[in-house]
Amino acid sequence: MYQYYYKTKDFGICLMEAVGAGEEAIIPADKEILIVGDDLFKGHKELERVEFPDTIIEIGGFVFDGCEKLKSVKLPANLNDFWQYAMTRCGIEAIEIPGSVARIASFTFNQCDQLKTVKINEGTEKILAWAFRDCVRLEDVYLPTTIKEISDKAFEGCPNVKIHRK
């Protein structure tokens, strides 16, 4: 069970800290949380499932770093941005990225060595260099028609990746 701590800023509410432990973290939808701060679940090796409310528009850096057992993350439908290293070194096997994310930043999914499948929804336009660096098991990436730019280094260290375009 996690207890959450927030900070109110000029721009709105930021989720700053998660204290406790558990296999599941469901972020409460009773507040208008806009941003998930850095390192929120960093090192929580027991964490398996996370669900964010749709009010969140940004996920900070290193939020899931070292969450080796993390298998399921429900991203907010209105997410605009992942910061660098947001999902780095976590255990997710599949992820669906909402189309509200205009670009996937460098190192967002760095060293997610269990990641096999990525589905990016209509609306996303860019995948920056090293966005999926060293995702050694990544096999299938499903791209929307809105993708305009993919760095030639976006999938560096992903030896078996296949890009599927609509």
Rank of each mutant, 00 (worst) to 15 (best):
I35G: 01
K148E: 12
I120Y: 01
D54P: 02
T117Q: 06
D152N: 13
A25V: 11
K74P: 10
A25D: 09
E139Q: 04
F41H: 13
F107N: 09
D39Q: 10
D54K: 02
C90M: 14
L40G: 09
E23C: 15
V136G: 09
S106Q: 02
D38P: 07
D152R: 07
I147P: 04
R137H: 07
E139P: 09
F64V: 09
C112S: 08
K148W: 11
R103F: 06
M16K: 10
N160E: 04
A18L: 05
A102Q: 06
T124M: 01
K31Y: 11
G12L: 01
E24P: 04
Y4Q: 05
D30T: 01
F62D: 12
L115V: 11
I56E: 05
K45A: 15
M1N: 15
L75G: 02
G91M: 10
D65A: 03
Y142R: 04
L75V: 05
D10N: 14
T8K: 11
I127T: 02
G66R: 10
W83N: 15
Y4D: 03
T8D: 11
C112L: 01
I13N: 03
R89M: 10
I95H: 08
L47K: 04
A86N: 03
A129W: 08
V161G: 06
F107T: 03
L70E: 02
R133L: 11
K31E: 09
R49W: 08
A18E: 05
C67V: 10
G61W: 01
P144V: 00
K69I: 15
S100R: 09
T108A: 13
G66K: 09
T108Y: 02
C112V: 10
Q114D: 13
E156P: 07
E139T: 00
I127F: 06
F11Q: 01
K166R: 10
E23V: 15
N80T: 07
C135D: 07
T117V: 10
W83H: 14
L34D: 07
E32H: 06
K7T: 11
R133C: 14
A102N: 11
V161W: 03
N110L: 06
I13T: 13
N80Y: 01
V136I: 15
I127W: 05
G20Y: 06
Q114W: 05
S151Y: 08
D30Q: 06
K162D: 06
K119A: 00
I26Q: 02
K166M: 14
F62H: 03
A25Q: 07
D54Q: 12
